[in-house]
Computed example of a mutant assay.
Amino acid sequence: MIRLAPWLLLIALTVYALVDCMQSDEDAVRGVPKLFWALLIVVLPLLGAVGWFVAGRPEQPRPGTGPRQQPRRPRGPDDDPDFLRRL
């Protein structure tokens, strides 16, 4: 069973990278077009998957780098104009 572990990890990494590639937005993919990344992941599973995660995957906004939005605080019924209008 221990001899199968590297192959199973490689298959899991390849499938995850391919699904992630297909679900990402075409305009947000870095480097080359999305179809080329998919072919690279299928033809060269380890190199393609690692390359996708390092150089092709769209960048996610990091916490604290974007504009700060205040979370919506719960309002009481007397602060809600729609509730007061229905009275």
Rank of each mutant, 00 (worst) to 15 (best):
M22P: 03
L40C: 06
D27E: 11
R3V: 14
G56L: 06
F36D: 13
P58F: 05
L8T: 11
P77I: 10
A17I: 02
R30F: 04
R75A: 09
V19L: 13
V29K: 01
G66R: 13
A55F: 15
V15K: 15
G56T: 05
V42G: 04
L47F: 11
L18H: 09
P67L: 12
M1Y: 01
R30L: 14
P77L: 13
W37I: 06
P45D: 08
R73F: 07
P58Q: 00
W7V: 12
Q69S: 13
D27W: 00
P6E: 04
G64I: 00
A49C: 04
A17N: 01
R73S: 10
A12F: 12
D25T: 09
P45H: 06
W37N: 08
V19D: 13
A12G: 13
G64N: 01
S24C: 15
V29Q: 01
Q23V: 11
M22Q: 15
E26N: 11
L46S: 01
L10K: 09
W52A: 06
R68H: 12
A5R: 09
D27T: 08
V42D: 08
Q69C: 12
G48V: 02
P45K: 07
V43D: 08
R68I: 02
R72S: 07
G31Y: 05
L18E: 10
G64P: 05
L39F: 13
V43W: 11
L9N: 10
L40R: 05
D20I: 06
E59M: 12
G51H: 07
L4P: 00
G51W: 07
R72Y: 04
L84V: 00
A38W: 07
P67D: 12
L8V: 14
D27F: 09
V32E: 11
L18C: 08
D82N: 15
G51A: 11
V50D: 00
L8R: 13
K34V: 08
F83R: 02
E59R: 15
D79V: 04
L47S: 08
L44I: 05
F36W: 15
T14L: 12
W37Y: 06
P81K: 07
G51Q: 09
G56Q: 08
L39H: 09
R3C: 11
V32I: 14
V50G: 03
I2D: 08
P63N: 07
R30M: 14
R68T: 05
P71H: 01
